[in-house]
């Protein structure tokens, strides 16, 4: 079970969180014309990375905040966690 540092609450066990997928995906702006390809990339197409991966988790059984987590998908090492409003650097 992973140990994730919620930027709001501190170190918590994985079972308090739910996974939310790739954190680098940006939703196209509302009302903006987007091509089929762009839309498919937003909705469906994801890389299955081995290694460092920025992903979203929600601290569901805690502060309910969505957070960004940089995790190694092969080793589970967590390098950094950010609040929802912090930009991935």
């Amino acid at each position: 079970m992973l140990h994730i540092k919620c930027p709001h609450c501190g170190m918590r066990s994985q079972n308090e969180f739910s996974y939310g997928g790739d954190a680098t995906i940006k939703r196209p702006e509302l009302g903006k014309e987007v091509s089929d390809q762009e839309w498919d990339d937003f909705v469906y197409n994801r890389k299955s990375l081995r290694g460092k991966h920025w992903e979203l988790w929600q601290h569901l059984s805690g502060c309910r905040q969505w957070i960004k987590v940089e995790r190694d998908t092969a080793t589970h090492e967590i390098f950094k966690t950010l609040k929802a409003n912090q930009e991935i650097s």
């Binding site: 739910s18 929600q58 569901l60 969505w66 929802a84 409003n85």
Partner: peptide, 11 residues
Amino acid sequence: LSHLEYYLQLV
């Protein structure tokens, strides 16, 4: 609820 929180917090 999670869906609404997602859009309010991230999008």
